[in-house]
């Protein structure tokens, strides 16, 4: 219930910005939505399934190029974004099948390598991608439709994660994160779940990559596959709380606002200050802001995975205690 209120209120607030906010507010929020979508996607595979990695930007970049090339060929930007999302899924399927056999640092760094490989392709196939020069696209005249599509993706990911968090599927992903060998031995179909989650976590980044290219009306390998995008996304999830419903949202908002404030006030040392803020949070709230709040059980903080607890606390006169085995 609390979760639903938080989602509806924040979605409603975000929906009025284009009508009341300045041009600056609009562009700030567009960037925020991009990061919310990225952070939630990363949270699925990194936070829930426990397969943290540094390669999500590969999907963002491949999506950006797929979309840009389609728009270049005359397709509508919305159709291009859809195709980009599909391209993310199609890339993730074989990649997941191959890469998810390894765990921990091997998977994390292996995926980082995959992103670099994709970047090299974008640079190397300059007949198609214009190489380092980049692709220039016709700018969209009205940003509002683009804004609302990004809004829908960002909050779609929030709702999806909320649903996942309250489902058995979410709990099974957490079981993989906690102890994959035990999960496997207890009949959880770990391979299927991992690859499925990995594919699901690639769709929104790829679609958002295409929309971001639309927003910039330009894309080049350095923008599409920027390691900074990757690191910012991961920092947001860590800051907010991995494997939680609202962690990525809180992390993305806090980090974007802090970033923006520090950048405008202290442009020379802002990165150092951002570093200090992250360091402080990691030291004092190692599991992120949302987990910190949940541990304290403040009344306004929605409990994690509350649906099972509700089911368990339901009075059940018909319960036969010896029905165990």
């Amino acid at each position: 219930m609390k979760s639903l209120v938080i989602i509806v209120v924040s979605a409603a607030l975000a929906a009025v910005i284009p009508f009341v906010g300045s041009e600056y507010a609009l562009s700030f929020t567009v960037q925020l939505f991009v990061f919310v979508a990225l952070a939630y996607s990363w949270n699925l595979i990194g936070g829930y399934a426990g397969y943290t990695h540094f390669g999500q930007v590969a999907f963002f970049g491949v999506g950006a190029y797929t979309g840009a090339l389609m728009m270049d060929a005359g397709f509508h930007w919305l159709l291009a974004a859809g195709a980009a999302g599909l391209s993310g899924a199609l890339l993730a399927l074989p990649l997941g099948g191959a890469m998810l056999r390894v765990k921990g640092p091997f998977f994390a760094i292996g995926m980082f390598g995959m992103a670099r490989v994709c970047e090299s392709f974008a640079l190397g196939f300059d007949g198609i991608t214009q190489g380092g020069t980049g692709l220039y696209l016709t700018p969209v005249t009205d940003l509002k439709p683009l804004y609302f599509v990004l809004w829908a993706i960002a909050f779609g990911m929030v709702v999806l994660t909320w649903k996942l968090d309250n489902s058995r599927l979410g709990i099974q992903l957490l079981a993989i994160r906690e102890d994959e060998t035990a999960a496997d031995a207890l009949g959880i179909r770990t391979t299927r779940l991992k690859i499925g989650t990995f594919v699901a976590s690639a769709i929104a980044p790829a679609a958002v990559g295409s929309l971001y290219a639309t927003y910039l009306s330009f894309i080049d390998p350095a923008t599409a596959f920027a390691p900074m995008t990757e690191l910012t996304t991961i920092a947001m999830v860590l800051l907010g709380g991995m494997g939680t419903t609202f962690g990525p949202l809180v992390g993305a908002v806090v980090m974007s606002v802090v970033n923006e404030l520090l950048w405008s006030r202290f442009p020379e040392i802002y990165l150092a200050l951002v570093g200090a803020v992250i360091l402080a949070v990691v030291l004092f709230m190692p599991r992120g802001i949302v987990s910190f709040a949940m541990r304290r059980a403040w009344w306004w903080v929605p409990a994690a995975r509350s649906s099972l607890r509700r089911l368990a606390s339901r009075p059940a006169p018909s319960r036969s205690p010896k029905e165990a085995h």
Binding site: I171, Q172, L174, A175, R177, E178, L186, L308, R309
Partner: peptide
């Protein structure tokens, strides 16, 4: 090999294959 960051109830429910949430 309990799943540490999950409650006891969640540890149990996670492996109730084929059952609905309420049954699990």
């Amino acid at each position: 090999r309990l799943f540490g960051e999950m409650t006891v109830l969640e540890n149990l429910v996670a492996v109730a294959h084929g059952a609905s949430d309420a049954e699990a």
